[in-house]
């Protein structure tokens, strides 16, 4: 068995473990819903209701770590279920397997493992999970586990369609900018993915909070165990601006490479166009956050559209659009 076959085996194993992690995270969400039911019954008995939970949280205002504040501003406090712990552990295991797969692919090809569509997908999803696990060490975002493992599984599944054998770099890709430009772009995608998920949950949470007090409780009960919409919005914003800065750098590094390779730093190639569009959408998102009447749900929609454009740029523009980036895609 050669290194590339080992890489493939390791990647398949990682996908299997991601699948189990996805199930564990889903069970956790279900458990959160039943915990909310139980808490509601309890509070109905004591008549304390949600106000008590919020009130007790208010007393710990001197806690300065974001994680502490996040756990506290959930309407129904929720600890760590066994399935949640299993989900996180399995995600770490799958991440390690995927890391091995990616590194082996790089060694087998004797270059960075991101020079074609299959390898982009492998490295890109690895970075999405890396960003997720990194954020977990600072903020409790484990409730996003279903989203992250689900997205990564789907992308890795699609990537199998684009599998190519190990090949040396064509002269056009032999550049230090391949290492920098593509890596930073993939890292930015990792942050945008998390920002997208947070904005999405923010919208759901906003709807739930809007309904509190009305007699329409909404179906997604687990939302009560998640941070408040405002907290989610702040987290989404911080994640997205890191992505935005990395994306700005991607665009500039790409321009420098384009100047060396094609003799012009900007030429409205289809991929350049979409990189520009994504940059403008996220610039709009940051503006929207600072515009009265646009903070909240409206700006969240922009973050969601932005990530949709990122996925479109990766999945559709590479494959179906004619342009200078095409040869690198498949």
């Amino acid at each position: 068995m050669n290194l590339n076959e080992l890489s493939i085996l390791s990647l398949y194993s990682a996908m299997a473990v991601y699948a189990v992690a996805f199930i564990a995270f889903s069970i956790d969400l279900a458990k959160r819903s039943s915990a909310v039911d139980a808490a509601d019954t309890e509070s109905a008995k004591t008549e304390a209701g949600e106000a008590a939970a919020v009130g007790s949280a208010g007393g710990t205002s001197t806690l300065t770590r974001i994680s502490a504040r996040m756990a506290n501003d959930a309407a129904t406090p929720y600890g760590r279920s066994a399935s949640l712990r299993v989900g996180v552990s399995l995600t770490v295991l799958a991440w390690a397997l995927q890391l091995v797969a990616t590194v082996l692919r790089g060694i087998a090809a004797d270059r960075v493992p991101w020079a074609n569509m299959y390898e982009f997908a492998m490295t890109g999803t690895l970075l999405i999970v890396t960003v997720f696990l990194f954020l977990l060490t600072r903020i409790d975002l484990r409730f996003l586990g279903t989203f992250v493992t689900g997205l990564v599984l789907i992308l890795l599944g699609i990537a199998q369609q684009y599998y190519v054998e190990v090949a040396p770099l064509p002269p056009a890709l032999q550049s230090v900018w391949l290492v920098i430009h593509v890596f930073v772009a993939s890292l930015a995608t990792g942050f945008f993915a998390l920002g997208f998920a947070l904005s999405f949950v923010q919208l759901l949470q906003f709807r739930r909070e809007d309904r509190v007090g009305t007699d329409k409780p909404g179906r997604l009960k687990f939302l009560k165990t998640l941070p408040a919409a405002v907290t989610l919005e702040n987290l989404a914003y911080r994640t997205n601006i890191i992505g935005f800065i990395l994306w700005t750098f991607t665009l500039m590094a790409g321009s420098i490479w384009a100047e060396r390779a094609w003799g012009r730093y900007w030429g409205w190639d289809t991929k350049e166009v979409w990189t520009f569009i994504i940059w403008v959408i996220y610039a709009g998102y940051i503006h929207a956050r600072a515009t009265r009447g646009w903070r909240g749900s409206r700006s969240a929609w922009l973050a969601i559209i932005g990530f949709a454009a990122v996925m479109f740029n990766f999945g559709v523009v590479n494959v179906f659009f004619k342009g200078l980036h095409a040869y690198s895609g498949l």
Binding site: G267, D269, V273, I277, V280, V317
Partner: peptide
């Protein structure tokens, strides 16, 4: 701010057709 935001989003949308139809420049 609202106008700036509107123009930004309009710019993003206006850039799309150039990727769907071949351009003389590129």
């Amino acid at each position: 701010m609202r106008t700036a935001l509107f123009l930004l989003l309009l710019l993003a949308i206006a850039a799309v057709p150039g990727s769907l139809v071949p351009q003389r420049s590129s």
